[in-house]
Write a protein that binds this DNA or RNA. Sequence first.
DNA 1: ACGCGCTCCGTAAACGTTTACGATACTATG
DNA 2: CATAGTATCGTAAACGTTTACGGAGCGCGT
Lengths: 356, 356
Amino acid sequence: MEHGGKPRPMKGIRQLAEHLDISIGTVSRALNGKPDVNEETRKRVLAAAEQLGYVANQSGRSLRQGTTNVIGLMIQSSRETVENSDNFFLTVTGGLQSVFSRHKLDLIMLPCPHDEDPYEYLKRMVARRIVDALIISETQRVDKRFDLLAKAKIPFAALGRSLSGTQHPWADLDFDGVANAAVDRLVAHGHRRIAISAPASEINLGFVFVEGYRRALERHGIPYDPALVLRAKSSEQGGYQVGDELLRLENQPTAVILIYELMAIGLYRRLMEAGIVPGRDIAVVSFREAPRAKFLQPALTCFRTSVHDLGVELAEILLSSMPAYSQEYPRTSRQTVWPLELIPGESDAFQLKAAK
Amino acid sequence: MEHGGKPRPMKGIRQLAEHLDISIGTVSRALNGKPDVNEETRKRVLAAAEQLGYVANQSGRSLRQGTTNVIGLMIQSSRETVENSDNFFLTVTGGLQSVFSRHKLDLIMLPCPHDEDPYEYLKRMVARRIVDALIISETQRVDKRFDLLAKAKIPFAALGRSLSGTQHPWADLDFDGVANAAVDRLVAHGHRRIAISAPASEINLGFVFVEGYRRALERHGIPYDPALVLRAKSSEQGGYQVGDELLRLENQPTAVILIYELMAIGLYRRLMEAGIVPGRDIAVVSFREAPRAKFLQPALTCFRTSVHDLGVELAEILLSSMPAYSQEYPRTSRQTVWPLELIPGESDAFQLKAAK
DNA sequence: ACGCGCTCCGTAAACGTTTACGATACTATG
DNA sequence: CATAGTATCGTAAACGTTTACGGAGCGCGT
């Protein structure tokens, strides 16, 4: 009533066709931009559809053409992830959508329930044919999902690199490079005994981060000491725990690299409790910049990147591997290591004088 | 090859029927647990389906029965939200799924792109019939989406209360109660000039929070001063900005209530810079507990709740309003104000002696 | 006048399911 | 033995859309 048109409930393309006194086939062609339809009738159809609020039923459409125009982003909202992913996924989603929307592709997020096996969940989603393509995240070092998707012949890309030999599209943050740069910087400041925090090595992230650290040490002729690799949760508590473990070490490190900037809050606290001042008595460098890092005292040296742009890249990688879109996104490589930039703070801004 | 069965690609229910030498109708009935099918043949069918990895095509199914067994959770990942929602949605999602999964309902998240109008986005999603029911979030004071969903006759519930007269299912955190309790506590500690931070009043949350604050003040006979309502972003920067505005006020408040615990980080910093010590010179109370609040110095007094359980409640509210499930979830009310619990910290643990 | 090509449109099949309906065989009942 | 009732299954229609195919009308060249 309040709007101008007749808000009669729209049933389907059939009613729309009757209302226009045109055949149903022509209506469909008009709506889908097919060539063999008079421009004038096309306008009439579009106008009527707009006015009556007609939108094609997705089920009918996808049943017929075997395509849904929907792309799924699977996330495992494990307890751990929920606590630390810190809107990483929502930000990535923004980047993904900015690309997909150009092609009238909708992105939906598929959150795997806590109590369901991610592999089984993915299998269900694939079989139900609810999406045309998939993006999976939180890749593991051995991840059966790659095979599953390859066998199902459904296009996919991974947020997180592959470490097995399988070749598939992925984009990942440059954990390797971050670890390298962190070690380089700390060594330049005089540090030789450097600890690192990381999640379990079954997680790709945990493995790659430590590997980069190890190789950087080697490059500087510093022996790799497994005792300095502190496995902890990526949270405030984890940071506190890292502080605990640091204090317990015999030959105490003069620097520590964190995998996640939230940990710095707990770490700072634990160190302060022990009378150790970050940025003076111990150097702290952390992967990944966040607004709150700026508010830590001393300001945290960390690495920044645009997660949004990572999403854009990932979307383009995925589309480039889909036949229907590949010519629009020509690429030489479908595997991207996404760079990060060092943001110097004060948490490591001191030269180490002598051994403690 | 590595698995036992024959991993031949499964085409549809027709192939499955041929393979079993049973009619396609019987196969469908067997899979869907319909009564008129021999138990033995049902077992055969289920076994074969499992072995061949058959899962019903969702498009065909939903086209036929007009239902998708999918429930959508729409989120607006506006820049603002992305920065401060802090996995609120992922946690709620966990709660929702724990209920939905009991009914073989899948939850998908529908993130509205930044550049699309939420109303139009929702309209598209509704018309495409991709979900059976919807949960919308971030309700506004005037929100056209309620009418849209009501007219489309699609079951829905809102994460966030309704302030217009419309009666529909919702669950919301008890912002009102929090503001009340915060004021009560501060007044009991001797404070009479209390500032509050909140988002814009167009957002339900911002409106309700300030309303609760205003009524609590009235109850204590304290005049409401609009100058003490500080509109800021719910982030560290927002907190810093709140600190700025506090310092700029003529008759400086002795206490401040924050809408989001992250803001405390920025607020603390700004106050420290001005030589004002939270928990000694000024009292700080914040809505909503988070792990990191425990690591602030002084520990933040805040309000805790289980967001997961809020999700459970919301799911039950939604199902109770869907004919197919309502008898399983009988309810007297479909509108829940979700309680929070005060967690005393040290940020307000002092008695105010005299006026400054 | 005829055929040819072109533009536009209508018809109907097909996508994979579910389900109303009817058919069959068997059992129980008189 | 006839009948009714029951358990189980097969048949076919229907869901809403897209698209291959063919047909109608028209202009144009021969």
